[in-house]
Design a protein around this nucleic acid. Sequence first.
DNA 1: AACTAAGTTTCAAATAATGAAACCAAGTTA
DNA 2: TAACTTGGTTTCATTATTTGAAACTTAGTT
Lengths: 261, 261
Amino acid sequence: MASGDGTVGKALEVLDQVASFGRPVRFSELIDASPFPKATLYRFVQTLTSQSMLAYDPDRGTYAPGVRLVRLAHAAWQQASLAPIARAQVDQLSADVGETVHLAQLDHAQVIYVDKRNAADPVQMYSQAGKVGPAYCTGVGKTMMAFLPEEELADVLGQQSYHRFTDTTHTSVESLRAELDDIRANGYGFDREEHEPGIICVSLPILSETNRVLGALSVTSTTTRTNLAGLESLVPRIKIAATAIAKEASSWQFPATVANS
Amino acid sequence: MASGDGTVGKALEVLDQVASFGRPVRFSELIDASPFPKATLYRFVQTLTSQSMLAYDPDRGTYAPGVRLVRLAHAAWQQASLAPIARAQVDQLSADVGETVHLAQLDHAQVIYVDKRNAADPVQMYSQAGKVGPAYCTGVGKTMMAFLPEEELADVLGQQSYHRFTDTTHTSVESLRAELDDIRANGYGFDREEHEPGIICVSLPILSETNRVLGALSVTSTTTRTNLAGLESLVPRIKIAATAIAKEASSWQFPATVANS
DNA sequence: AACTAAGTTTCAAATAATGAAACCAAGTTA
DNA sequence: TAACTTGGTTTCATTATTTGAAACTTAGTT
């Protein structure tokens, strides 16, 4: 029941569509790619704009995701994501291993990178936080899937595209499932250049006390710098970080429930 | 007609409410502060959760803004905000003046800080982007208001709280309007410790070729380090940045309208 | 066993969303 | 200048969705 609950679901679908263009769009472009009839889409766009969820540029006649999202995301990132909780651990880990560290969470069938740390250059982070990737061919994606309860897993598996990016990309549910079993058994997973040639990573899940998947950590490198065995040797170190993050997440108590002032 | 258009508007109101708590909330806390009846609010929360706009923590029974927002905000920040366009100018300005520079935009009656640069310590920015402030007592807020067309201005003025933060805070529309006239005449405005004692700033608007308010830039300092005259001397330098940003914003052409691949 | 609080479900009535079609405004083109 | 576009906006009867009081379910109290 994930997609399309009521009017709100449809409106958010429109919002996603605008966002997916990656640039401001005309109404006419939107209508071409939309399942909704003109008048309906028109009203959604109007409503979203009036709500600042979309921003209308009157000079150009284009729509883009609006600033209200930036405000809401600020809250989301602080409260719902592991990023602020994990910050210290991610910093440390990245410094220790000298490679790029990703912190990701699952949103439906997609992986969302909520934080990233690059030992070498401390890149500006907003540009990275919020980036999405496919779950079925990334280290973090597979690792999170591996620890999902069966029903949710089935759901997520059904929503993957299985597009072949490289010749190691999984292209069927079966082969993917087989690997997920391995990951579950080992406690960690790899990205074997499945998404981009030359890019490999190890990934560990971040699990709550009740074994829910909270997110995943990964250390990424290139085949020119190291290999899977090299990355595997980092597992114990990453495990420390993952455990520490999980622990903090569960003890994370919010300011004693003060009545709203 | 800004607030409460249809079901979508109500759902977003709920989303805002959750975000405004600043921490994960129980359903019961939400209902206490909500105008909606139990069943209605319940359904909204369900819908938003199923859409990943809210995240439900089953261990604690709490709701928080969801990760989907982070993904959407990524798009918003890149496309709708001035931040990526202004980056270079903000960097330069901050380095030149050696003070904190803010880049802000207006969302309804609120100011949203979309970027911030601190010369001294290059602080992680996501934590700041998305932060909101009151329009009526911040330099950027007043400056943006000053250049709004009358009807919009009236709207925004009506939505301010006029809460007295310090003894220089404007507490009435009249006194605020008077200052806005000055700002419009001068082309820049100050924050005279109106929001926080000891904190002062100068702010300039970023205006499109058609004179629409795109945002505002400000340089903030403290009364111990400088004074209003000191900040005023920076106006020409800030003006250069503001103009450059406006120019880039208007020439900002997106990748030639390629049909969707 | 009788309460209470928090969360969830029902269902007829009220309301809001829907979308085909008409309309408007700027451009073409002939 | 008149007949076509193309992109955007409005109307309005029909249809589907939302609404919310009330009943119900847990899971904790007392």
